[in-house]
């Protein structure tokens, strides 16, 4: 039986399995996948709340519940794909307890990892028992030895919005640095036992931006995705973050370029499929699904926003200040 600690200081919330909403940790506890003491973040201060970030962005605390995130008017207005995804995941009861940070740092949902009968890379073993199995849940574009897709939809939203995450004591880092390149098969993220995920910082909304989320799954609710996409589009700008295909949350620049060029998506996904490291009969079916998912979101968003025309006049020169600003040490 695992012990549970209830620290009341952020500095104490280290060394162990961090538990927030418990929707991942309790699952792993019941599958015998928790060895360390559980560190319950319930009483740790400063992890909750949604509020303004410097420069017009938004700061989302790691302990914010998914239901709160989905209902927050600021998120809905400025970063709608994040709100849509938070409100569409899992089921209402899970969303009432699961947290933003927990979604970002949950462990893989791979059935082989969760089964006590196997010992894969992520369970401290030395192989991937799923690698030779043809299963549509596997991630064909994984570049590392683990074939499980990364489970965090909200990480895709952070990627699509070029957000950063605040890790104590490491500081503010890019989302890509939070997850690495997928080559470290033993871990889903780079947060160590001495570190704590505190918040995410979303940059201000771009002018004319639209965003949306679509999930391809075997049933309408409470199911993990086969493929999912989050699109963030603005004039001359496209972000396409894709789930179900990689072992880390990832953007697909080839799809972004195709959207900006108005090019068809099927040749793009066909090229991706041809070079996919873990392509199989089942996972090849996910590539056309990916193209359709992107097209569905684009259609829902009313198309790709047209690039702004180049200015036909020279921009006005910025007048020099009347009094030069003092220079030197302050």
């Amino acid at each position: 039986m695992s012990d549970v600690r209830h620290p009341t200081l952020r500095a104490q919330a280290i060394w162990g399995e961090r538990r927030a909403g418990g929707t991942d940790v309790m699952d792993r506890l019941h599958h015998g996948r928790i060895a360390a003491p559980i560190v319950d973040l319930r009483d740790v201060p400063g992890l909750d709340g949604v509020g303004p970030a410097p420069g017009g962005g938004l700061r989302v605390g790691s302990a914010v519940r998914l239901a709160e995130l989905a209902a927050d008017e600021r998120v809905r207005a400025g970063w709608p794909a994040l709100a849509d995804a938070a409100g569409g995941l899992a089921n209402p009861q899970i969303r009432n307890v699961a947290t933003f940070g927990g979604s970002l740092l949950q462990r893989t949902r791979c059935a082989w990892f969760r089964s006590p009968d196997f010992r894969c890379y992520k369970a401290g073993g030395t192989g991937c028992p799923a690698a030779g199995v043809d299963h549509p849940w596997h991630a064909p574009l994984s570049t590392g030895p683990c074939v499980a897709p990364h489970p965090s939809t909200l990480a895709l939203a952070l990627l699509a919005f070029d957000a950063k995450v605040e890790i104590e004591p490491r500081g503010l880092i890019e989302v890509a640095a939070l997850y690495g390149d997928g080559m470290a098969a033993g871990a889903e993220h780079t947060v160590t036992e001495e570190e704590l995920l505190v918040a995410a910082i979303l940059p201000p909304p771009r002018p004319g931006a639209v965003s949306g989320w679509f999930r391809v799954a075997s049933r309408g609710r409470a199911e993990w995705p086969l493929v999912e996409v989050i699109l963030h589009l603005a004039p001359g700008f496209a972000r396409v973050a894709v789930g179900g295909m990689h072992s880390v949350p990832a953007r697909v620049p080839e799809l972004e370029a195709a959207l900006l060029a108005g090019a068809p998506l099927d040749p793009v996904v066909a090229t991706l499929a041809a070079s996919a490291p873990h392509a199989s009969t089942s996972t090849r079916t996910k590539f056309p699904q990916l193209a359709r998912a992107v097209e569905i979101v684009v259609a829902r968003l009313g198309g790709v926003p047209a690039a702004l025309p180049a200015p036909s006049f020279a921009p006005p020169a910025v007048p020099a200040p009347a009094t030069p600003a003092p220079r030197g040490r302050r």
Binding site: H6, R19, D40
Partner: peptide, 13 residues
Amino acid sequence: GAPRLSCITLAVG
């Protein structure tokens, strides 16, 4: 007053 999945709720909580 709120629905909770008791299988993933810690009793001490």
